[in-house]
Design a protein around this nucleic acid. Structure first.
Length: 272
DNA sequence: CAAAGGTCCTGCTCGC
DNA sequence: TGCGAGCAGGACCTTT
Protein backbone atom coordinates (compact mmCIF):
# COMPACT_ATOMS: atom_id res chain seq x y z
CA UNK A 1 0.00 0.00 0.00
CA UNK A 2 2.17 2.71 1.17
CA UNK A 3 4.53 4.42 -1.17
CA UNK A 4 6.74 7.29 -0.21
CA UNK A 5 3.96 9.89 0.06
CA UNK A 6 1.92 7.63 2.31
CA UNK A 7 4.93 6.95 4.54
CA UNK A 8 5.79 10.64 4.68
CA UNK A 9 2.16 11.45 5.50
CA UNK A 10 2.31 8.87 8.27
CA UNK A 11 5.54 10.37 9.59
CA UNK A 12 4.01 13.83 9.75
CA UNK A 13 0.92 12.42 11.41
CA UNK A 14 2.64 10.57 14.23
CA UNK A 15 5.67 12.78 14.91
CA UNK A 16 3.95 15.59 16.84
CA UNK A 17 2.21 13.06 19.08
CA UNK A 18 5.26 11.05 20.09
CA UNK A 19 8.42 13.12 19.70
CA UNK A 20 9.86 13.92 23.11
CA UNK A 21 7.81 11.24 24.85
CA UNK A 22 9.18 8.25 26.72
CA UNK A 23 8.32 4.65 25.88
CA UNK A 24 6.61 2.90 28.77
CA UNK A 25 5.78 -0.40 27.05
CA UNK A 26 6.02 -2.35 23.81
CA UNK A 27 3.28 -4.86 23.06
CA UNK A 28 4.00 -7.43 20.35
CA UNK A 29 0.92 -9.48 19.48
CA UNK A 30 2.30 -11.03 16.30
CA UNK A 31 6.07 -11.18 15.83
CA UNK A 32 5.87 -12.94 12.46
CA UNK A 33 6.23 -10.03 10.08
CA UNK A 34 8.45 -10.15 7.02
CA UNK A 35 11.28 -10.67 9.48
CA UNK A 36 10.66 -11.58 13.10
CA UNK A 37 10.15 -8.62 15.40
CA UNK A 38 13.30 -8.43 17.57
CA UNK A 39 12.59 -10.25 20.85
CA UNK A 40 14.60 -7.68 22.80
CA UNK A 41 12.57 -4.74 21.49
CA UNK A 42 10.74 -4.07 24.72
CA UNK A 43 13.93 -4.18 26.78
CA UNK A 44 15.64 -1.85 24.32
CA UNK A 45 12.88 0.78 24.20
CA UNK A 46 11.32 0.89 27.64
CA UNK A 47 12.23 4.03 29.53
CA UNK A 48 13.83 5.63 26.48
CA UNK A 49 12.84 9.03 25.15
CA UNK A 50 11.95 9.29 21.45
CA UNK A 51 13.87 12.18 19.97
CA UNK A 52 12.76 12.40 16.36
CA UNK A 53 10.77 10.61 13.66
CA UNK A 54 12.52 10.64 10.30
CA UNK A 55 12.11 8.85 6.97
CA UNK A 56 14.50 7.22 4.53
CA UNK A 57 12.87 5.76 1.44
CA UNK A 58 9.76 4.00 2.76
CA UNK A 59 11.30 3.32 6.14
CA UNK A 60 10.28 5.31 9.20
CA UNK A 61 13.16 5.97 11.59
CA UNK A 62 12.34 6.49 15.24
CA UNK A 63 15.49 7.96 16.74
CA UNK A 64 16.36 7.31 20.37
CA UNK A 65 19.58 8.29 22.12
CA UNK A 66 20.98 4.77 22.02
CA UNK A 67 19.63 3.49 18.72
CA UNK A 68 16.98 3.68 16.02
CA UNK A 69 13.80 1.75 15.41
CA UNK A 70 13.20 1.12 11.69
CA UNK A 71 9.64 0.52 10.56
CA UNK A 72 8.52 -0.58 7.12
CA UNK A 73 4.83 -0.75 6.25
CA UNK A 74 5.18 -3.28 3.44
CA UNK A 75 2.19 -3.56 1.16
CA UNK A 76 -0.67 -3.22 3.62
CA UNK A 77 0.71 -1.59 6.77
CA UNK A 78 -0.51 1.53 8.53
CA UNK A 79 0.21 3.31 11.80
CA UNK A 80 -2.25 5.08 14.03
CA UNK A 81 -1.96 7.06 17.22
CA UNK A 82 -4.54 5.83 19.73
CA UNK A 83 -5.19 5.93 23.44
CA UNK A 84 -3.22 3.14 25.08
CA UNK A 85 -5.44 0.20 25.86
CA UNK A 86 -7.74 0.68 22.86
CA UNK A 87 -8.95 -2.87 22.10
CA UNK A 88 -6.90 -4.30 19.22
CA UNK A 89 -8.56 -5.44 16.02
CA UNK A 90 -7.47 -8.13 13.58
CA UNK A 91 -3.93 -7.60 12.27
CA UNK A 92 -2.97 -5.08 14.94
CA UNK A 93 0.47 -6.58 15.51
CA UNK A 94 2.43 -4.07 17.56
CA UNK A 95 1.89 -1.19 20.01
CA UNK A 96 4.51 1.25 21.22
CA UNK A 97 3.09 2.83 24.35
CA UNK A 98 4.22 6.26 25.54
CA UNK A 99 4.18 8.05 28.89
CA UNK A 100 1.10 10.12 28.05
CA UNK A 101 -0.96 6.94 27.57
CA UNK A 102 -0.99 7.24 23.81
CA UNK A 103 0.29 4.45 21.64
CA UNK A 104 1.44 4.00 18.07
CA UNK A 105 -0.24 0.91 16.67
CA UNK A 106 0.94 -1.03 13.63
CA UNK A 107 -1.71 -2.79 11.57
CA UNK A 108 -0.57 -4.91 8.64
CA UNK A 109 -2.88 -7.63 7.25
CA UNK A 110 -0.38 -9.04 4.76
CA UNK A 111 2.55 -8.86 7.17
CA UNK A 112 5.03 -7.74 4.52
CA UNK A 113 6.09 -4.94 6.84
CA UNK A 114 8.96 -5.21 9.29
CA UNK A 115 10.49 -3.77 12.45
CA UNK A 116 14.21 -3.48 13.13
CA UNK A 117 16.35 -2.17 15.95
CA UNK A 118 19.78 -0.81 15.20
CA UNK A 119 22.34 0.81 17.45
CA UNK A 120 24.77 2.32 14.96
CA UNK A 121 24.16 4.86 12.23
CA UNK A 122 20.92 3.70 10.57
CA UNK A 123 22.37 4.67 7.20
CA UNK A 124 24.72 1.71 7.62
CA UNK A 125 21.91 -0.75 8.26
CA UNK A 126 21.90 -3.45 5.57
CA UNK A 127 18.40 -2.50 4.43
CA UNK A 128 19.30 1.16 3.99
CA UNK A 129 22.94 1.08 2.95
CA UNK A 130 22.35 0.24 -0.71
CA UNK A 131 19.42 2.57 -1.33
CA UNK A 132 19.61 5.16 -4.07
CA UNK A 133 19.04 8.87 -3.45
CA UNK A 134 15.81 10.27 -2.10
CA UNK A 135 13.61 11.35 -5.03
CA UNK A 136 12.90 14.66 -3.29
CA UNK A 137 16.56 15.29 -2.50
CA UNK A 138 19.04 17.31 -4.53
CA UNK A 139 21.00 14.26 -5.70
CA UNK A 140 18.04 13.05 -7.74
CA UNK A 141 18.38 14.70 -11.14
CA UNK A 142 17.89 13.91 -14.79
CA UNK A 143 21.64 13.69 -15.22
CA UNK A 144 21.83 11.15 -12.42
CA UNK A 145 19.14 8.98 -14.01
CA UNK A 146 20.79 9.28 -17.39
CA UNK A 147 24.15 8.15 -16.00
CA UNK A 148 22.69 5.25 -14.03
CA UNK A 149 20.60 3.99 -16.94
CA UNK A 150 23.29 3.55 -19.58
CA UNK A 151 23.33 0.02 -21.00
CA UNK A 152 20.24 -0.87 -18.99
CA UNK A 153 17.87 -2.92 -21.08
CA UNK A 154 15.00 -3.16 -18.63
CA UNK A 155 11.90 -1.03 -18.99
CA UNK A 156 12.23 2.49 -17.66
CA UNK A 157 9.34 1.88 -15.26
CA UNK A 158 11.13 -1.12 -13.75
CA UNK A 159 14.31 0.99 -13.59
CA UNK A 160 12.52 3.77 -11.69
CA UNK A 161 11.13 1.25 -9.23
CA UNK A 162 14.59 -0.16 -8.45
CA UNK A 163 15.35 1.05 -4.92
CA UNK A 164 19.07 1.03 -5.66
CA UNK A 165 18.46 3.58 -8.41
CA UNK A 166 16.08 5.86 -6.52
CA UNK A 167 14.48 5.16 -3.17
CA UNK A 168 10.77 4.93 -2.65
CA UNK A 169 9.21 5.20 -6.12
CA UNK A 170 6.52 2.51 -6.18
CA UNK A 171 4.02 1.32 -8.72
CA UNK A 172 1.44 4.09 -8.51
CA UNK A 173 3.85 6.98 -8.75
CA UNK A 174 6.10 5.36 -11.35
CA UNK A 175 3.01 5.09 -13.56
CA UNK A 176 1.95 8.65 -12.81
CA UNK A 177 5.40 10.17 -13.34
CA UNK A 178 5.92 8.51 -16.72
CA UNK A 179 2.51 9.73 -17.86
CA UNK A 180 3.37 13.27 -16.80
CA UNK A 181 6.70 13.03 -18.58
CA UNK A 182 5.11 11.58 -21.73
CA UNK A 183 7.38 8.50 -21.73
CA UNK A 184 6.27 4.97 -22.58
CA UNK A 185 6.77 2.82 -19.47
CA UNK A 186 8.14 -0.10 -21.49
CA UNK A 187 10.91 1.84 -23.21
CA UNK A 188 14.38 0.51 -22.44
CA UNK A 189 15.94 2.62 -19.71
CA UNK A 190 19.26 2.78 -21.56
CA UNK A 191 17.66 4.23 -24.68
CA UNK A 192 16.21 7.38 -23.14
CA UNK A 193 17.92 10.73 -23.69
CA UNK A 194 19.34 13.04 -21.07
CA UNK A 195 16.63 15.57 -21.92
CA UNK A 196 13.84 13.09 -21.35
CA UNK A 197 15.35 11.98 -18.07
CA UNK A 198 15.26 15.60 -16.96
CA UNK A 199 11.51 15.52 -17.60
CA UNK A 200 11.14 12.20 -15.83
CA UNK A 201 13.04 13.38 -12.74
CA UNK A 202 10.93 16.53 -12.60
CA UNK A 203 7.74 14.50 -12.99
CA UNK A 204 8.71 12.12 -10.18
CA UNK A 205 9.37 15.09 -7.93
CA UNK A 206 6.12 16.80 -8.86
CA UNK A 207 3.88 13.81 -8.43
CA UNK A 208 5.37 12.84 -5.07
CA UNK A 209 5.18 16.41 -3.80
CA UNK A 210 1.56 16.75 -4.87
CA UNK A 211 0.66 13.40 -3.31
CA UNK A 212 2.23 14.34 0.01
CA UNK A 213 0.32 17.61 -0.01
CA UNK A 214 -2.92 15.65 -0.49
CA UNK A 215 -2.14 13.22 2.33
CA UNK A 216 -1.18 10.31 0.08
CA UNK A 217 -3.29 7.87 -1.93
CA UNK A 218 -5.89 5.64 -0.30
CA UNK A 219 -6.91 2.75 -2.56
CA UNK A 220 -8.14 0.25 -0.02
CA UNK A 221 -7.21 0.56 3.57
CA UNK A 222 -4.50 3.16 3.90
CA UNK A 223 -5.22 5.60 6.72
CA UNK A 224 -3.43 8.59 8.13
CA UNK A 225 -2.35 8.60 11.76
CA UNK A 226 -5.81 9.79 12.76
CA UNK A 227 -7.62 7.16 10.69
CA UNK A 228 -8.63 9.40 7.79
CA UNK A 229 -7.88 8.54 4.13
CA UNK A 230 -5.48 10.31 1.75
CA UNK A 231 -7.05 12.18 -1.13
CA UNK A 232 -4.48 11.89 -3.90
CA UNK A 233 -6.49 9.10 -5.47
CA UNK A 234 -8.69 11.84 -6.90
CA UNK A 235 -5.64 13.18 -8.72
CA UNK A 236 -4.41 9.95 -10.29
CA UNK A 237 -4.24 10.53 -14.04
CA UNK A 238 -3.32 7.05 -15.24
CA UNK A 239 -3.09 4.47 -12.44
CA UNK A 240 -6.02 2.04 -12.43
CA UNK A 241 -7.77 3.91 -15.26
CA UNK A 242 -7.73 1.12 -17.84
CA UNK A 243 -10.11 1.86 -20.72
CA UNK A 244 -10.96 5.31 -19.45
CA UNK A 245 -10.14 8.40 -21.52
CA UNK A 246 -6.73 9.99 -21.14
CA UNK A 247 -7.15 13.29 -19.35
CA UNK A 248 -4.93 14.98 -21.92
CA UNK A 249 -6.00 13.52 -25.28
CA UNK A 250 -9.06 11.36 -24.62
CA UNK A 251 -7.68 8.08 -25.96
CA UNK A 252 -8.41 4.94 -23.97
CA UNK A 253 -5.78 4.11 -21.36
CA UNK A 254 -4.09 0.74 -21.78
CA UNK A 255 -3.00 -1.75 -19.18
CA UNK A 256 -0.07 -4.15 -19.39
CA UNK A 257 2.43 -5.88 -17.13
CA UNK A 258 6.04 -4.93 -16.52
CA UNK A 259 8.13 -6.64 -13.90
CA UNK A 260 4.97 -8.44 -12.75
CA UNK A 261 3.34 -5.12 -11.86
CA UNK A 262 0.27 -3.50 -13.39
CA UNK A 263 1.28 -0.81 -15.81
CA UNK A 264 -0.84 1.89 -17.40
CA UNK A 265 -0.13 4.21 -20.28
CA UNK A 266 -1.80 6.38 -22.88
CA UNK A 267 -1.05 5.08 -26.40
CA UNK A 268 -1.03 8.61 -27.78
CA UNK A 269 0.70 10.67 -25.09
CA UNK A 270 3.30 7.99 -24.26
CA UNK A 271 4.20 6.59 -27.67
CA UNK A 272 7.89 6.26 -26.89
C1' DC B 1 -8.24 -18.26 -9.45
C1' DA B 2 -6.15 -13.62 -9.81
C1' DA B 3 -4.50 -9.43 -8.02
C1' DA B 4 -3.36 -5.92 -4.63
C1' DG B 5 0.29 0.05 -2.90
C1' DG B 6 6.87 -3.87 -1.56
C1' DT B 7 11.27 -5.65 -1.98
C1' DC B 8 14.50 -9.12 -0.66
C1' DC B 9 16.78 -13.18 -2.21
C1' DT B 10 18.39 -16.70 -5.44
C1' DG B 11 20.22 -18.21 -9.51
C1' DC B 12 20.98 -17.37 -14.28
C1' DT B 13 23.24 -14.86 -18.29
C1' DC B 14 26.24 -11.61 -20.21
C1' DG B 15 30.45 -9.07 -21.03
C1' DC B 16 35.01 -7.74 -19.75
C1' DT C 1 38.11 -19.03 -15.78
C1' DG C 2 36.42 -15.54 -12.60
C1' DC C 3 33.81 -11.68 -11.22
C1' DG C 4 30.34 -8.20 -11.03
C1' DA C 5 26.20 -6.25 -12.88
C1' DG C 6 21.94 -6.85 -14.61
C1' DC C 7 17.82 -9.34 -14.87
C1' DA C 8 13.71 -12.65 -14.22
C1' DG C 9 11.19 -15.10 -11.08
C1' DG C 10 9.84 -16.73 -6.55
C1' DA C 11 9.02 -15.84 -1.97
C1' DC C 12 6.55 -13.83 2.01
C1' DC C 13 0.79 -13.09 3.49
C1' DT C 14 -4.29 -11.92 3.74
C1' DT C 15 -8.23 -10.01 1.64
C1' DT C 16 -11.37 -9.02 -2.11
Amino acid sequence: MPELPEVETTRRGIAPHIEGHTVTDVIVREPRLRWPVPPALKAALRGQRLRRVARRSKYLLLHFDHGTLLLHLGMSGSLRVLPAGTPPQAHDHLDIVFDDDQCVRLRDPRRFGSVHWTRGDPADHPLLAALGPEPLGEDFTGDYLYARSRRRKSAVKVFLMDSKVVAGVGNIYANEALFRAGVHPGRAAGRISRERYARIAAAVREVLTAAIAAGGTTLRDFTLADGSPGYFRLSLAIYDRTGQPCLRCGQAIRESRLGQRSTFHCPHCQRS
